[in-house]
Design a binder for these strands. Structure first.
Lengths: 264, 264
DNA sequence: AGCATACTCCGTACGCCGCACGGAGTCATA
DNA sequence: TATGACTCCGTGCGGCGTACGGAGTATGCT
């Protein structure tokens, strides 16, 4: 489980944004600070780059989770002193923002997928779903991460796909939000289940086999009738995660489709 | 922002479960440990109770977030030594599980609401949504929290409401999962937006007014055409959170309804 | 009555963490 | 050649969760 301070601190939003959008902004060579592709500055040439740091951090987080990510470990992996990192990145929170955007850079663009808006939107959700599986720590990085350029790119692409529904702009955004929220929520569930596996060393199925009866003793027809019934009829048996993700996705797409063909 | 170690540790699931379900299990007076309502044991009578600790912890987390919650602070608020807490609660992670279940105890049961399955299910989602607003830290407590009795109660009630759809058990559970995931996902978004407000001290609207242009310079028709268009047409103007939550909720319910009236 | 025992309370200490600060070394520029 | 902006990073601070073990206390047994 996971928590990382944030709250309270003013944390210069301005600077975070500039770092996140480095080299994507309007061309202004004068203020090409904290970048890799910038005009030469005075002192010694940097031994590191923001990219390297972000990459190393992602590797650590992939392996040990966001809770296992520390500035000391990143520095160690790169063979530098811990405090050197702060030359490139103002704080850990900003590093996480950069990591999130870097992951989105690897995602493809849904509106280029073959098919209509429904297939394209589904492809978007599925890829997000996959990214969440591959980088569980993304789910633990709560708190408004200022939007980065690559995240924006994928969002833009999703909107482009949805545009084919012909729905008003306002609903396009709402529809994208539904799908995004849903995907994230389901990914959290899936991650939790995988985490349980890791913790106990057994598969979820095996865990239920062992501890299910004990929990079952608590779920009787009297205490939790609906859960009991579902349980009895095998509704909780691991019909794997992907299937139930897909079920919900299709329901949401159905709902959106209803708005297209329906009134309006 | 927020991270809390967990991972790796075996963390006696058995004991956690017994603590979480204390007084809800089958009657077994012999092993009434770590409870408040148990047979008298030997040593000095406990000065605290699990309930008190959980309550104090919730108050702190409500005020300062999960990142601001520390065992030291809980102890201080209760006027005891830090380590005394460990007499009642094996670790912070377990305390968080207890907190989550305690919050669900305050939630009402959707299947008792007036109306059909659609109204009841919507009521469930709206109340979860409210609980998430009131206790943002719930959203930061990722990782499989072993299911507590009160969480189970509300889930059972939701299943009961959905049962009126007549869908097969398997789909009832899937439908409940969709709604639950969606609600959580949207709550995260809303929390992020509120957090931004708190961080900058201005309302989100004011923040956009000030920094929007600068961000707008990055979002041109060329770079992010769909976002640009949506932006221009005011689709991002704060049509408040509740409305967009409600929009998605109705879409999902539409999708589920389609399964009821459709084939099958 | 008296003692063993099981229990609560909690001070101390350890090993982590993020990061403020300031000194030392490096190099483009004036 | 001297300046001063820049990188690198050792040290140290205040916080964290919690292991350990000792001291005090109430119960149950003889």
């Amino acid at each position: 489980m996971i928590v990382m301070r944030d709250e309270e601190g003013p944390r210069d939003l301005e600077r975070s944004m500039r770092l996140l959008w480095r080299a994507h902004g309007e061309p202004d060579p004068a203020e090409a600070t904290e970048s890799g592709a910038a005009v030469r500055r005075r002192g010694p040439k940097p031994a590191l780059s923001v990219e390297q740091i972000v990459l190393a951090a992602i590797e650590i987080a992939d392996a040990e989770g966001l809770g296992g990510l520390s500035m000391r470990k990143v520095a160690e992996r790169l063979g530098v002193g811990t405090m050197s990192l702060y030359t490139y990145v103002p704080a850990k929170a900003e590093l996480v923002s950069l990591m999130l955007d870097a992951v989105d850079a690897r995602g493809s663009l849904p509106h280029t997928v073959e098919g209509g808006w429904r297939e394209q939107t589904a492809a978007w959700a599925r890829e997000d779903w996959l990214l969440y599986q591959r980088h569980e720590w993304m789910l633990q990085a709560s708190g408004r991460q200022p939007l980065g350029p690559n995240t924006m790119r994928r969002f833009d692409s999703a909107l482009r796909a949805l545009r084919e529904t012909g729905l008003p702009q306002h609903e396009l955004v709402a529809a994208a939000d539904v799908i995004d929220s849903y995907t994230r929520g389901m990914a959290v569930r899936a991650a939790e289940s995988r985490q349980l596996e890791r913790r106990t060393g057994t598969s979820e199925q095996a865990w239920w086999d062992e501890h299910g009866p004990q929990l079952g003793a608590r779920i009787s027809e009297a205490t939790y009738p609906a859960v009991y019934l579902a349980w009895q009829s095998g509704a909780f048996d691991s019909d794997n995660d992907i299937d139930s993700f897909e079920y919900g996705l299709q329901r949401i797409l159905d709902g959106i489709e209803g708005r297209v063909t329906g009134e309006d």
